[in-house]
């Protein structure tokens, strides 16, 4: 009985909120808050599918390529640094300094170096998003249980077997949470790189709409970006749960006992 009530509340409240927005904003003449029906109309006109290829696809492609680059470089470099502790000691402060720079602050530098093109956007995204993954990978590998290391030495596992069979799974949960932060950073930098300077992309369109006072277009851009941010995180989360099912299961068991 109680459970059904909570289920109804869980599904019902968002629906009511959206309906309330629809009802309250209907016929609104407030410049900043146009009617939701009009926003949705503009949403359809803009994104489905007039600007789909020219802007949405471009933005998403930059995000995916930048994030993929950041993940590969972050995990790869992380392995190198963790396996060669001395090199790690030399580079640790430099890496932590770069990690501390607010990621969007790197965008103007890449604009200065490579201009406003697609390369700049992908590079900015990759460079800003690499650090969370890199640091999490190093931390995860350094935290691998020493018994595991000893056992794999006793069994004389080859380097390949050790890396793929022991180290990668052991550090997997760490790496995954680093990558999740990287994905969010990548998303922020994707928008920032589009908003800075005259360019295509959803962020650029949204800011342009605001500057030219097309308020409903701006709202539709905000909605689209919100949905993309949510969807990107959800897809990542689903993938993480699949890959780390063994870990999540063992954690739940440990918690239950």
């Amino acid at each position: 009985m109680r459970k059904t009530l909570y289920l109804v509340l869980g599904i019902g409240t968002p629906v009511i909120l959206i309906l309330a927005w629809f009802a309250v904003s209907a016929g609104s003449t407030d410049t900043f808050f146009p009617p939701l029906s009009y926003i949705l109309e503009r949403f359809q006109a803009l994104w489905l599918f007039a600007h789909f290829q020219s802007d949405i696809l471009v933005s998403l492609l930059n995000l995916v390529i930048g994030f993929a680059l950041a993940s590969v470089i972050g995990v790869g470099l992380g392995f190198v640094l963790a396996m060669l502790p001395k090199v790690g000691e030399y580079l640790d402060p430099v890496i932590h300094f770069f990690r501390s720079i607010p990621p969007v602050a790197l965008v103007p530098i890449f604009v200065a170096l490579i201009g406003f093109g697609v390369e700049m956007r992908v590079t900015s995204i990759a460079m800003a998003a690499v650090f969370p993954t890199l640091i999490a990978t190093v931390d995860g590998l350094r935290g691998v249980d020493s018994t595991l290391k000893d056992v794999s030495a006793v069994y004389r596992l080859s380097t390949r077997e050790k890396v793929l069979g022991v180290y990668l799974p052991a550090a997997g949960p760490h790496i995954a949470s680093g990558m999740q932060v990287s994905l969010q950073t990548a998303f922020v930098v994707m928008i920032a790189s589009e908003m800075l300077g005259p360019a295509q992309g959803i962020g650029a369109m949204t800011l342009l709409a605001q500057q030219s006072f097309m308020i409903a277009d701006m709202w539709s851009g905000i909605l689209l970006l919100g949905v993309i941010g949510f969807a990107a995180n959800m897809i990542f989360e689903l993938g993480r749960r699949r890959l780390l099912a063994w870990y999540i299961g063992s954690r739940q068991l440990a918690k239950a006992s």
Binding site: F32, V104, Q184, F187, V188, I191, A192, M195, T206, L207, A209, Q210, I215, M218, W219, G221, I222, L225, G226, G229, F230, A232, N233, M234
Partner: peptide, 14 residues
Amino acid sequence: KPVPPIVILPLVVL
């Protein structure tokens, strides 16, 4: 939760 504040920047600036 996963939507960064930069998304609402145009609205807040407006």
